[in-house]
Design a protein around this nucleic acid. Sequence first.
DNA 1: CCTATATACGATAGCCAGAGTCCGATATCA
DNA 2: TGATATCGGACTCTGGCTATCGTATATAGG
Lengths: 152, 152
Amino acid sequence: MIKFNRTTEYGLMALRHMSRKQSTDPAEVTSAREIADSYGLPFEITAKTLLRLKDSGLIHSACGAKGGYTLLRPLDQISLAEFLDLMEGHQSIVSCAGDIKQSAEGCQYDTRCEIKHVMGRLNEKVTRFLSGIHLAEIAHDSFNLGNKGSST
Amino acid sequence: MIKFNRTTEYGLMALRHMSRKQSTDPAEVTSAREIADSYGLPFEITAKTLLRLKDSGLIHSACGAKGGYTLLRPLDQISLAEFLDLMEGHQSIVSCAGDIKQSAEGCQYDTRCEIKHVMGRLNEKVTRFLSGIHLAEIAHDSFNLGNKGSST
DNA sequence: CCTATATACGATAGCCAGAGTCCGATATCA
DNA sequence: TGATATCGGACTCTGGCTATCGTATATAGG
């Protein structure tokens, strides 16, 4: 069903870390080592995650000693829909896909499947839902994600 | 991110098939063979899917010749959240889980992870979203899933 | 009773993506 | 020149999804 990649989770932790650090001093840079050590993550994984964030345009990198990463966009301007796209690739809710890349492969039962069209619509609805959530809400400790009454 | 199992898709097609069939005559039974043939699905897969639907309590089965399956609950009373739970198991949006079965295994970075709590909240929000969608909406051809302005 | 038709269900194998590891290349500062 | 970083490919390992096979059980009807 709906589940995040590890990379997505690590990426979120990294973005949160950098956001907090830069809120004090925007010029602060963060190394992969620092994040790996902070959260006890394997260094290689962390490095790969940050590289992905950089390739996605969310952070900036500087090579060499004293190098590291800096956050480019504030977290309240990155939606969960976009973040998932960047981290995990553009995916449809069904394997046969609705209108995303179905022409590439599609499913073998394509011709007789009668729910494909409808699933495409459902996929749109999910995307709209995820577009309404921003990383800032998730990165903050004291967020509520628009909860209404769940007390737990 | 968010994606359905094949079993979930097949199950949806089967429920839709039975729902339509029984809308004419509620006493109609449907065999696995019939569904497999109707949509060109492998018989074994279809049988397994129907068995799962039966174990989930969504449909009733009758053994023997003239046996088959009948829909137990109307599709507008089955939410997508429940259906996904039944077909794919109760899953959390993150591998470390929020409050579902984290005690079982959890993730190894548990102690230092600072987003777990927040992810649990996010998971709740997603579940509420999925609870607001019912299978009837998906099973019908002319549904709109509460879309606002998409003209297609 | 026998047979055709169904469901019930475990065992198994292939496949693929996710996750993690290893190793080396490149860039920059002191 | 050396220490510290990012960059990035190649590889393995694992687990879950998917599908297949074989067999047991239940029931209607002649």
